[in-house]
Amino acid sequence: MFIINCPFCGKRDQSEFKAGGEAHIIRPKQPTELSDDEWAEYLFMRKNIKGVQFERWNHVHGCRKWFNIVRDTSNDEIKTVYKMGEDPPKL
């Protein structure tokens, strides 16, 4: 049970949040122009890293805002938290 520092509300218990998978996967602007393989790449392919991972989280039982976190999946250490639309931090 980790503590997440919501960029809008501050430090809250993990139980208030919902994980939303890998961050920085952008929905293609023109899906109709993609081949099956390209679309499948967007739709299905996700990294599953043991180590530092960029993730989307939603403060679902709080401000309902989506944001990004950088988390080490091997020990749950959260390196940093940043808002949607902001550039991923250089590590």
Partner: peptide
Amino acid sequence: LGKLEDYLQTEWP
């Protein structure tokens, strides 16, 4: 609601 919020906040801000 969660899904719609997701698209609004992340894909179509």
